[in-house]
Design a protein around this nucleic acid. Structure first.
Length: 518
DNA sequence: GGACGGTGAAACTTCAGGTTGCCTC
DNA sequence: GAAGTTTCACCGTCC
């Protein structure tokens, strides 16, 4: 531990350290525990930075152009960048994150205030790593972060090629806190690493894939296999472990993902020789890397379509009920009415569970409804700025949600196929396509064409061109007025050729899609 | 005297991260 | 549990 003399420019120690680093001509990473704090801290540091720099405004302009219509978050970030400061968290669009990281590596960005996004994985060293928060919110209030995580963050200090040393600084508010931090973190031992198999979703996914790949067949082999894992080594109690595996096997069988030979003539004392094999459905679930629990929820939802009147919302709510879609969007106090209203509106049309008001799960249910409403607005072509405003969901988070939804929709399509619900495959496929592109149903046929995304499709639609036939009928000159000459010619050529074309890229910043036109 | 703006205390709200599949609608 | 935001009461100033 070193004694640092930091000039007290403001009454906030974190900001003082950041400013001191800039004045030394060096760079700092500041780690905080929430997105909001990251944004606020970056803004506060920026306010105290004097002077201008051409490179700062160039980067700021670049960042502003990433999204088609900049959100309030973009504007805030760009304001910070004009002072050579940035914030960084999972809510940023991927391209913006990349620009900031590159800007930091190039030395343009002097200070980044970040959530733990920057702590792991990314090689982004700084002269100083300032760890402001050593506590983070969890279900039971604020909890100290693991020592391992502290080490990750402080490990960012010191750039091998530029500095001979680095400084990792924790911020304490009192002498007592300073002592506690020293003991817990600076001199503390990192936690033991625990096997991920101990988590049930991982265990059941793994168990099914072992059976599906025929790596293990009998109960005995299964137990032997798990007996040799790191999980068993840590758990020590093999009896308890067997119990857990047995319960999992029962569930997998109940969900019809595996079939056992128990029905054949096997005596109770010879239970170990019971063999298991995956059903066709089980095999596909394993191939999809889907948690069997989720797969079963999807299967039940798909079956339910036979007995209820369903709509787009029903499918979104089914997805939002899965573990994969978590964390769901939080329902704020002022949003209770809106969510309750939606519950009333869609009552009886849902494919996922509909718990009672007094049920423990009602809170999660409300969240699933809010998240489904977000998806509804997305396919109603609401912009990212509007979504941030209405749902508090940032562009980066939208991407993760869409990515998960796309994957789950794909899984749902596959399960629907296996269940033989042929009419439903098209319905799900079409909705999946709309989610990918963020478009209303009416734009689907236009967006299938190469070079036409949601913006151009909407332009065409407004001009009365609603499908491929409309595009074929319109002359190239008029089409040029709407889309530009070059684009019009390209589209006309494409339509005449009537060949398979591969298209990549969708709604700005989205994952790539491929389409086939016949 | 009323409109307006600034200030600070109290009340209220919200809280990190990011892989998996595949070629079709 | 605590940071950050919003709300509201209070006060001073100006017209």
């Amino acid at each position: 531990m070193a004694n640092l003399k930091i000039p007290e420019i403001s009454n906030d120690a974190t900001i003082n350290v950041a400013l001191d680093t800039i004045n030394k001509g060096k760079q700092a990473l500041i780690f905080v525990n929430s997105k909001r704090s990251a944004e606020k801290t970056a803004e506060e540091v920026g306010k105290k930075v004097t002077g201008v720099n051409e490179a700062w405004s160039v980067l700021s302009t670049k960042v502003m152009k990433v999204l088609a219509s900049p959100t309030t978050q973009c504007k805030r970030l760009c304001g910070c960048l004009l002072k050579g400061v940035a914030f960084h968290h999972a809510g940023l669009a991927a391209k913006q994150r990349e620009l900031i990281e590159d800007g930091f590596r190039d030395g343009v960005v002097k200070v980044i205030a970040s959530t733990p996004t920057l702590a792991a994985g990314l090689d982004l060293p700084a002269f100083r790593a300032v760890i402001r928060d050593l506590k983070r919110f969890c279900n039971r209030g604020m909890a100290p972060i693991p020592v391992l995580e502290y080490l990750q963050m402080s490990g960012r200090a010191g750039r091998p090629n530029y500095d001979t040393f680095g400084e990792s600084i924790c911020i304490a508010k009192s002498e007592a806190e300073k002592e506690a931090i020293t003991e817990e973190y600076i001199n503390g031992d990192p936690e033991e690493i625990y096997s991920k198999l101990a988590v049930e979703p991982v265990l059941r996914t793994y168990l099914l894939s072992l059976i599906a790949s025929k790596f293990v067949r009998s109960r005995k082999q299964i137990l032997e296999f798990f007996g040799k894992t790191f999980w068993a080594y840590q758990y020590e109690d093999m009896g308890k472990l067997e119990e857990i595996i047995e319960r999992m096997l029962q569930l997998l069988e109940e969900w019809e993902f595996i079939k056992s030979s128990k029905d054949d003539f096997i005596s109770a004392d010879n239970l170990d020789s019971v063999t298991y094999r995956a059903t066709l459905m089980g095999k596909r679930v394993a191939e999809l890397y889907l948690d069997p629990y989720t797969a079963n929820q999807l299967v039940e939802g798909i079956r339910k379509t036979h007995s209820i009147k369903y709509g787009d919302f029903s499918f979104f709510q089914l997805l939002c009920n899965t573990l994969e879609m978590r964390p769901l969007l939080n329902v704020r106090q002022k949003e209770y009415d809106i969510v309750e209203e939606a519950i009333m509106k869609y009552e009886g049309t849902l494919l996922g569970s509909e718990p009672d008001y007094f049920d423990d799960e009602h809170g999660d249910y409300m969240k699933s409804i809010k998240t489904s409403l977000f998806f509804m607005d997305w396919v109603e072509e609401k912009g990212e700025d509007a979504l941030l405003e209405h749902y508090g969901i940032r562009p980066g988070e939208i991407r993760y949600k869409l990515n998960s939804a796309d994957w789950l929709f794909y899984a749902m399509e596959e399960l629907t196929r296996l269940l033989g619900f042929h009419d439903l495959i098209k319905v799900i496929g079409r909705l999946r396509f709309r989610v990918k592109h963020g478009i209303k149903d009416e734009l689907v046929s236009l967006v299938r064409l190469k070079g036409i995304g949601r913006v151009r499709a909407r332009k065409l639609f407004r001009n009365g061109i609603k499908d491929v036939r409309g595009l074929k009928q319109i002359d190239v000159g008029r089409l040029g007025v709407i889309l530009g000459k070059g684009m019009a010619e390209k589209i006309k050529k494409e339509l005449d050729q009537d060949v398979s074309v591969v298209k990549k890229g969708t709604r700005k910043g989205q994952t790539s899609v491929e389409k086939f036109i016949k």
